[in-house]
């Protein structure tokens, strides 16, 4: 029983990270049709920014941790906004070329991170509470899992609130449904594009700081490895669906953890298998619109 609970919480923590990456990916794809390969770079930049904050202030209390979260999210958001404004904007409606741009950007950015921070992973210290465990139903669960889960739930709630109740949220939702109609109504949908990129980048940056605590290190490859699972999550959840991304993140991560434990480290294959099954029976994903 205790193993199951431990696996469940570890899976939920990992799922929270997947969600933080996949949420932005899914919104960006849903609104703009851009498959953003640079999303991993946003995450890595956020992680390094958070690590720099922790390193420079030298202390590892909660205040610094919260500050590093903020700085990480801000770094991710700034990078994302820059990407949209300078590079993507020039190529609206050219989806493959936008994809190629983000691909080139991710190559260049990861190489630059290599150059600045080195290719080896750097280890990170959080508040002392992170190293402790909390006992639930006999399972000793590392505390950083809870932080990831809580953060992801807050981000999900904030995004849902933003999309449902604010003017720009409505524009984004309308844009995902039918972009040309929104444009025809005289709304400048390009602002929504920048906004979606910024929000996605902020979530990814936040995810980066949390991921560095979850895994215990930061490396330039951090974003790339999470990005691939985030892609799988967005396809399984249905491209453009935030709720779908949330459900699929949890499902994929928990499945992965259980398979890793009970089926001898086959988590990654089980995930790919799940992807194949979803594609065979529901090509548009769990909550995706059937075209």
């Amino acid at each position: 029983m205790s193993t199951v609970v431990l696996l469940l919480f570890t899976g939920l923590g990992l799922g929270a990270l997947y969600f933080l990456v996949a949420a932005g990916l899914s919104l960006i794809y849903g609104l703009m049709g851009v498959l953003n390969f640079a999303h991993g770079a946003f995450l890595t930049l956020g992680a390094f920014a958070g690590w720099e904050v922790a390193r420079r202030t030298g202390s590892d209390n909660w205040g610094i941790f919260l500050l590093s979260l903020l700085v990480g999210a801000a770094a991710g958001a700034a990078f994302a906004a820059f990407t949209e404004f300078v590079l993507i904007r020039r190529l609206y409606q050219r989806h493959i070329e936008q994809l190629l741009i983000t691909l080139g950007l991710s190559l260049a950015a990861v190489a630059l991170f290599d150059g600045i921070w080195g290719t080896d992973p750097v280890f990170i210290q959080g508040p002392a509470w992170f190293k402790d465990t909390t006992e639930i139903l006999g399972a000793r669960i590392p505390n950083d899992r809870f932080v990831c889960i809580i953060a992801a739930v807050l981000v999900l709630l904030a995004m849902v609130f933003f999309l449902k109740n604010t003017r720009y949220g409505m524009i984004i939702r309308a844009g995902v449904e039918n972009r040309s109609m929104v444009t025809a109504l005289g709304i400048d949908v390009r602002k929504a594009f920048t906004l979606v990129f910024t929000i996605g980048g902020a979530a990814a940056g936040l995810g980066g700081v949390l991921a560095s605590h979850y895994f215990g290190y930061v490396s330039p490859m951090l974003g790339g490895s999470l990005l691939i699972f985030a892609f799988i999550v967005t396809v399984i959840g249905g491209l453009g669906s935030l709720t779908g991304a949330a459900i699929a993140s949890v499902a994929v991560a928990v499945l992965q953890q259980f398979a890793n434990f009970y089926l001898g480290g086959t988590g990654d294959f089980v995930v790919v298998l799940a992807l194949a099954l979803v594609l065979l029976f529901r090509p548009s994903g769990l909550l995706g619109r059937t075209s």
Partner: peptide
């Protein structure tokens, strides 16, 4: 970083 230069070059070519 060769990949930085190649990545940047690639972006420029696409643009």
């Amino acid at each position: 970083e060769p990949l930085f230069i190649l990545g940047t070059l690639f972006i420029l070519v696409v643009l």
